[in-house]
């Protein structure tokens, strides 16, 4: 199996506070990798390091084969990122957002045209294509920003709580998009608080107090902790946490 993310003792300190402590794991190509943990466990910090938004304090990592310290610009060409905060431009239309983000990733005019038609078709947003993004319902925005994040066909896409505040039906649709992306060979790295979503992942890791406490498939984790649902796995692991919000 191809390794697309490899980290070795990756650590991030803010003064005395260790947000992420010696994280070591591998993520394989085409995999949906769930990144779980309570609030404040260090998920976002870890993810920001992997995206090149934050410099690690120590440890090493390679993303899509590129070094996290020296080749950040190469990494950026090969990843997509969808942050917790909605981060498309609300005062641009759907089409303009697609054009802009596609454009800065270097897509040609022809590609841009094809891609945006295709994307708007898949999302069923033909009527809204010329509407301001700010006017869309949250669920639509999330689907749109995911689609924009993978517009340039990155090797890996990082999703930071992509379905927060979204209704169950839209969440289901959102995961359909994720599966589709994974099928096309994009590795999906996703953080979530929904345990049903955790079940959809190929493998998950559990972060507690800045450290990875468990890493396996959902089935094996349930087996290991002798419980029937991911909820209980999460509860067992997170209960020991010293940090809270």
């Amino acid at each position: 199996m191809d390794t697309v993310i490899h980290t070795d003792k990756l650590t991030k300190r803010f003064g005395d506070f260790i947000a992420a402590n010696e994280i070591t794991f591998d993520v394989y190509r085409g995999e949906i990798f769930g990144f779980l943990g309570a609030n404040g466990a260090g998920k976002t910090t870890a993810m920001r390091m992997l995206c090149g938004l934050s410099k690690p304090s120590s440890g090493t990592a390679t993303i899509a084969g590129f070094d996290i310290y020296k080749q950040t610009e190469e990494i950026k060409k090969n990843i997509g990122y969808m942050s917790q905060k909605f981060s498309l431009y609300e005062d641009l239309t759907i089409l303009e957002n697609i054009r802009f983000f596609g454009g800065i990733y270097g897509l040609s005019d022809k590609q841009l045209k094809e891609k945006s038609e295709q994307l708007i078709g898949t999302l069923g947003m033909e009527c809204e294509a010329k509407k301001m993004v700010g006017a869309l319902p949250l669920g639509w925005k999330q689907k749109l920003s995911f689609s924009v994040a993978i517009l340039h066909e990155p090797k890996i896409v990082f999703l930071d709580e992509p379905t927060g505040g979204v209704d169950p039906v839209t969440r289901r649709q959102f995961w359909d998009l994720i599966y589709e992306a994974a099928d096309s060979g994009i590795t999906v790295f996703v953080t979530t608080h929904y345990m049903d979503e955790a079940e959809y992942c190929n493998r998950i890791s559990m972060m507690v107090d800045g450290e990875i406490k468990a890493l396996d498939t959902p089935a094996k984790l349930k087996q290991e902790y002798a419980v029937t649902s991911m909820d209980e796995v999460f509860y067992r692991l997170a209960r020991g946490a010293k940090r809270s919000e």
């Binding site: 938004l53 997509g80 981060s87 498309l88 431009y89 990733y105 270097g106």
Partner: peptide, 14 residues
């Protein structure tokens, strides 16, 4: 403030 700069920062924009 809005958070869009984060999205810009993960792109290869110089």
């Amino acid at each position: 403030e809005v958070g869009t700069i984060e999205q810009i920062n993960v792109t290869p924009i110089k």
